[in-house]
Amino acid sequence: MRLTTILLALALAFGLAACGSGKFRTYNGPEVTSIQVHKAARKMYLLHNDKVLEQYDIALGFAPIGHKQFEGDGKTPEGAYQINFRNPDSDYHLSLKISYPDENDRAFADEAGKPTGGDIFIHGHSNWKGRNKGDWTAGCIAVTDREMEVIYSMVRVGTIIYILP
Rank of each mutant, 00 (worst) to 15 (best):
P64K: 08
Y45K: 10
L12R: 04
K39F: 07
D145K: 12
A40G: 06
D110S: 09
T137L: 02
K75E: 00
H67W: 09
A18W: 10
T26M: 00
H93R: 11
L96P: 09
R86S: 09
F24Y: 15
F14S: 11
F62W: 13
P165Y: 01
V155C: 00
T137S: 14
G130Y: 05
D102T: 11
H48I: 06
P64H: 04
L10A: 03
A107L: 10
S21G: 12
C19L: 15
P165Q: 13
R25C: 00
G22T: 10
S126T: 11
I160G: 04
E147I: 09
R156D: 13
G72E: 04
A9H: 04
T159Q: 07
R106N: 02
F14R: 05
T116K: 12
R156M: 05
K75W: 06
I58N: 05
G74H: 12
L164D: 14
L8S: 08
R131I: 08
A142E: 07
S99Y: 03
C19K: 05
W128D: 02
N87T: 06
D73F: 05
P64M: 11
Y100I: 12
G15M: 01
A109E: 03
V157T: 12
P77L: 02
L60W: 04
E54C: 06
C140H: 04
Y152K: 07
R2Q: 15
T159K: 09
R25H: 05
E147Q: 13
G22E: 06
G61C: 10
A9N: 03
M148W: 02
P30W: 02
T137A: 03
Y100G: 11
I160V: 13
N28H: 13
F108L: 14
A142Y: 14
P77M: 03
Y27P: 00
T144Q: 01
I120K: 02
V155L: 06
G15T: 07
N28S: 11
A142W: 15
S153M: 00
